[in-house]
Nucleic acid binder design. Sequence first.
RNA 1: GGCGCGGUACCCAAGUGGUAAGGGAGAGGUCUGCAAAACCUUUAUGCGUCGGUUCGAUCCCGACCCGCGCCUCCA
Length: 492
Amino acid sequence: MTLRLFNTLSGQLDEVLPADGVALRMYACGPTVYDYGHIGNFRTFLQVDMLRRALRLFGVPVRHVMNITDVDDKIIRNAAASGVSIADYTPRFEQAFLDDLKSLGVEMPEVLSRATEHIPQMVRLVERLAEAGAAYMAEDGNWYFRLKAFPEYGKLSKKDLEGISDGARVDVDEYERDSARDFALWKATKPGETGWETAIGRGRPGWHLECSAMAMEYLGESFDLHAGGEDLMFPHHENEIAQSESATGKLFARHWFHVRFLLVNGRKMSKSEGNFFTLRDLLLKGYKASAIRLALISVPYRHQLNFTFDGLVEATSAIDRLRTFATRLRAANLETGATVAGSAAASRAHEEFLAALANDLNTAEARAAIFELVREGNIALDAGLLRAEDRDAMLRALATFDSVFAVLTDNDAAPTRAAIEWASENGKLDQVAPELLAAQSLTDAEIDARIEERNLARRQRNFRRADQIRDELAALGILIEDGRDGVRWKHK
RNA sequence: GGCGCGGUACCCAAGUGGUAAGGGAGAGGUCUGCAAAACCUUUAUGCGUCGGUUCGAUCCCGACCCGCGCCUCCA
């Protein structure tokens, strides 16, 4: 099966295959490390993660490059406000970002590239553009891209060059430029300001330049797929295309993958709306990393996702259902052999799952295919009809599901613990949900001791005492479940 | 103003020119000292409104209403 994805450039579903027949070369615009990542950022990175996992599932090796923008206006502003250089300011946020990706189960790209480590490549690109007559230095020392040099400008975002100024705010006072729409490649800086001494003058890169230079550095002048949030389509990606193709004369990226913005409580996320959340905010409120991951990937990437706390609760329950089923399957004592119904259910789930992903990464439909399997498997288990080979086939279907969704294995404790530690180190303990904090205060051994005490009370049929202990633990966020084969507990 | 997306049950959310996936929540049931958990069953004559095309439309076309996004730093 081949993955077909919507391509912003062609405006249709295109098959995603490596042009060189070896590995799919993809570039994804990464974060600007000036602050902690928010869930909007992570929806995009998570969907790119789904894409690379799906490609691998379809047998396509991936060479994935992600940039880290570690120099830009906001970084310079924030670093200055903190009284440190940008080199001292950004590592903390870069590490936080990478930690957050790990918490969410996002795989690391094959290459991480920092803008500040590729200044020579960027300078060379400006020089090439200047030679081609597509770049010029203005009186202010800034280098600009000459839009008139690239007639195809607007082909990605389907914008008419003439229409761009309509209603858009264009700084008409920038008289140094040939055209108000020419964009900055390189910004001149004065000594003392953040900058590099280079052949094209002292300065720092414009935002768009870094992606072109680094994509070409690691993937070549022409590569398979370029990904990013929908907001980057214009002007960022349009500018990348203009710069790159003007310099090389080659098609920059064949396929453009854009992830739609999410909404939070029905509105665009913004600090002023009060609906702005970082991953850490959510972990500290007690939501599990796996639930956040599932909530952010369950709506297909081209659809607007409305992110809510209710959605996180739902995702939590959905994951419990999946994990319980997997556990139940593994623990079941089954006769050897297979049944027609059991095998059919497993293979159909498997096929429907793959078909859904192949169809423009329809994660909602893919998820549904697996939940149908859960229901059918549970019914067969209840009826005692499932055989060992059916079970194995179902476990394989679940494994396939999880190779892309990655929510089945419970790795939730570590991110939560790390978030609490982080809050503690940064004076934010007041933001931690009380139950979460209370639960952390008890060691597992202490919990086990309390449960043993309760078991004793139960054996003596002292149910008042037993219920009292259960309530006390519940107040600390520990849920007790009496099962046939012993007592289990879990964090709420 | 230009470009684009969406309106499907209590909530989230797929989908198809032939009669509505899945998840959550609610209700009922099994199990249990009780509870929880788990499991099963169940919940839209209906897919924003009004027209049109068609044997037949939620799905196609048109108009309208509503919500949202991009066009400016932004994932």
